[in-house]
Amino acid sequence: MISVQNVTKDYKLGKTIVKALRGVSLDIENGEFACISGPSGCGKSTLLNLIGCLDKPTTGKVIIDDEDVGKLNANQLAEIRNRKIGFIFQSFNLIPVLNVYENIEMVFMSWKDLPKEEMNKRITSLIEEVGLKDYLKHKPGELSGGQMQRVSIARALVTEPQVVLADEPTANLDSKTSKIILEIMVNMNNRHDTTFIFSTHDPIVSEYAKREINLFDGVIKSEIIEDRN
């Protein structure tokens, strides 16, 4: 479903060119629960950004559903991000002026084809699934870090995307909350068969993944595929 083919990514920092990715290739199948691990600066976020259509590779291809996303314009990329990809951020990235319900509803900004009742059903059922039924009208400022990350998970899943990308989703959470969040993600993966790709440099977190892609210095150093069932 997602194919990363010999991708490189260079960044310009003043006169210096930083090679964030130096030729990465990998295929991710539907329903996978994969983790990209590695130390800081190894290219985890860059790889997630490329898979998430937030950025384009310097060379190589990122193929999503047989479509080379490198050839798409800004609006087409936005459309793919909106329909096929869900994002979970390290800092939760909720809109402070919107409440829990509205933060999730906002994703449907340009959905003209979904009836309002269906939209409402999807939002409320996901809010229930992440355990925030009593917090519908709460603004992000009134929530704990763990609760905000649950809203973020619900927001990422509400469009029923093919893949959810989570960039260090537990980095700002304590170990207990991290465990809860990871378990929610695992449950969602099992229940909705949604592909999850998350990055982490924490070995405890990476243990949850069924497949671990270890990056080092912009290249895949090793790959572990486990069947924890």
Binding site: R81, N82, F89, N93, I95, R155, T159
Partner: peptide, 16 residues
Amino acid sequence: TNEIGTLMAIGFKRIH
């Protein structure tokens, strides 16, 4: 700026 990035990530188009 960060919020703009978030909105873009969740699929907001430039016109939005």
